[in-house]
């Protein structure tokens, strides 16, 4: 039972940074913008989070600074891709490179100094329930916040007018402009929201998951988040399941020995990636579902007619 609880909670925790980053990217892509800079923004968020925490400021401030830093970094992409209509792939890639570099520079200040970690919340009564308590009520606040964000984003995209506007801009910025919506402004907001969420994902890694700063500590999680959005066919609930799938693979790989799996560690550590590819291939067969949810204008530069 303890092993099951360890795998279950481990999965939830490992999935959290992916959920933040992928949900943010979902909103960005739904508005028709492809930001390949998630990895960079996560790193910036992770480094800034540790920096603020290392400076002795309270944890909530560290988390908010990480989100703000992610949003600020995304603005760089926004200016290139939305104002100057640079190729979005190139702008996103350069943001990743930029973010990797900047986060390393920030990290120079405190090396691998240990910091106070974000600790699980003690919820009266609930946490103490046997099995249920450790399974569901023994997480740090950011885990719960990721679920709140999931609910908020699903509600926003599919139940509010603003969400409808975001989705329709992603389908046709030309038509949205024609009926009078400020396409560029809304895309900027979406991009910055995505940046803030990636920053949170990064902060989760450096403040909760492994509470210290290591250069390049995201180790490809930004790219997995990007793949998750596609694998989820641009639906929020599928992102959640996808993140759990990757999380469980990561934990299984770590717990492989305890479970008595005698596969070479190289094979185990490649499992999450292999799973992505397989699932991607399977999911892309459903043409109809994809066509309905795919933001048609994705990565296409848009300039309003004059």
């Amino acid at each position: 039972m303890d092993l099951f609880i360890a795998i279950f909670t481990g999965t939830i925790i490992a999935a959290t940074p992916l959920i933040f980053a992928a949900l943010g990217e979902l909103v960005v892509e739904k508005s028709g913008v492809l930001n390949l800079g998630i990895e960079g923004m996560m790193l910036v968020g992770a480094a800034v989070g540790v920096w603020v925490s290392y400076a002795g400021l309270p944890m909530p401030l560290a988390i908010m600074s990480a989100a703000a830093a992610g949003a600020l970094a995304s603005l760089l992409f926004g200016v290139l891709a939305l104002t100057f209509l640079t190729n979005q792939y190139a702008a996103g890639l350069s943001l990743t490179i930029f973010g990797t570099g900047v986060s390393a520079v920030i990290g120079k200040g405190f090396g691998s100094a240990p910091i106070d970690a974000l600790i699980p919340l003690e919820i009266p009564f609930l946490t103490e329930i046997p099995v249920i308590g450790p399974l569901f009520f023994n997480y740090d606040p950011l885990v719960y916040f990721s679920f709140i964000m999931f609910g908020l984003i699903s509600w926003f995209l599919y139940k509010t007018k603003a969400g409808l506007v975001v989705r329709t801009i992603g389908e046709s910025p030309e038509s949205s402009h024609a009926i009078g919506y400020p396409v560029i402004k809304i895309r900027y907001l979406a991009v910055m929201f995505g940046g803030a969420m990636a920053g949170l994902g990064g902060a989760y890694l450096s403040l909760a998951y492994t509470p210290l700063w290591v250069e390049n500590m995201t180790a490809g999680k930004g790219w997995i988040s990007l793949a998750l959005v596609v694998f989820a066919a641009w639906r929020p609930a599928r992102i959640l399941f996808g993140a759990w799938l990757f999380g469980s693979m990561t934990i299984l790989q770590l717990q492989g020995q305890a479970l008595g799996i005698s596969l070479p560690s190289e094979v185990l550590s490649s499992l999450p990636y292999i799973a992505t590819i397989v699932v991607l291939v399977v999911i892309s067969k459903n043409w109809q579902f994809l066509a309905l949810n795919f933001p048609t204008s994705l990565a296409k530069p848009f300039r309003p007619a004059e």
Binding site: R167, E171, S176, T296
Partner: peptide, 14 residues
């Protein structure tokens, strides 16, 4: 200037 992936009433709501 209609959007294909949403319903008629959502289009009009815009």
């Amino acid at each position: 200037a209609l959007f294909e992936s949403v319903s008629v009433v959502e289009n009009i709501a815009l």
